[in-house]
């Protein structure tokens, strides 16, 4: 961070830039900070885990995927390949997801937004845009053997293994709102949701998870291990 100079305007693009994170000790409130995010009494064998991966960096990248300079610039700045349609790439800290033919979403550590934007601008040229939307959206994580069932109740997109392999990313309808859904693992999903809709989506997902046993919060190691065995008798369909 120390090398970054907070300039008002990026010289090359003539676009206003701004380190939006306070330096002083200012509390940040994520979009779901008001929701109780821990199960007081967790179910025995939860089918669904739900938690917020709050206060991350969210940068929207716009540019021409067919422009080699743009691709290389993104790769140099993020260390990630520019993903093809409906795909995502991922490093330890950063994830880069395809949103549209000229749009990607880069997510990563919350305190890195301005540093990453500056790095990107250093490596990019021509017609491109970087937009910091870190305050405008959050990541909701959905895991567990029945996470996929919860998604089936919530969105019209086909989330079956055959259509939604790990790494795929899809922007689609979720309940009466929308989400960008990325599959991180066998039973592990990430939903990018807009701040103003986050409360509604959170309540919707809690409701949809009810019948499978909902654990608010991340699975611990032991539970995560149990998840690899997803067979659960459905109480109704038998």
């Amino acid at each position: 961070m120390s090398e970054v100079i907070n300039k008002t305007v990026d010289e090359a693009t003539q676009v206003a830039i701004m380190d939006q994170c306070p330096t002083a000790d200012v509390p940040a409130r994520s979009p779901l900070a008001h929701q109780d995010q821990s199960s007081k009494v967790a179910p025995q064998n939860p089918g669904v885990f739900l938690w917020e991966d709050a206060l991350k960096t969210h940068l929207v990248l716009r540019g021409d995927a067919n422009n080699a300079d743009f691709r290389q610039g993104i790769e140099a700045a993020t260390g990630l390949d520019l993903p093809e349609a409906l795909q995502s790439t991922q490093s330890d800290d950063w994830a880069l997801g395809w949103i549209a033919p000229d749009e990607w979403l880069l997510t990563g550590p919350g305190d890195q937004a301005f540093a990453m934007e500056t790095t990107l601008r250093k490596h990019l040229s021509g017609h491109y845009a970087v937009i910091n939307v870190s305050g405008g959206q959050t990541l909701v994580r959905l895991a567990g053997p029945e996470a996929r069932s919860v998604l089936m109740k919530s969105c019209p997109y086909d989330v079956h293994d055959r259509n939604f392999p790990i790494g795929k990313i899809v922007n689609t309808v979720l309940a009466k709102s929308q989400a960008t859904i990325r599959r991180l693992g066998e039973n592990d999903w990430e939903l990018v949701v807009r701040r103003s809709f986050a409360d509604y989506i959170w309540r919707w997902l809690m409701d949809a998870s009810g019948e499978y046993g909902l654990h608010l919060g991340q699975p611990d190691a032991a539970t995560a291990a149990r998840q690899s065995n997803p067979s659960r008798a459905n109480p109704v369909e038998g």
Partner: peptide, 10 residues
């Protein structure tokens, strides 16, 4: 652009 069929709701 997405190269897929999607539901009308989208």
């Amino acid at each position: 652009y997405c190269g897929e069929h999607r539901e009308e709701e989208e």
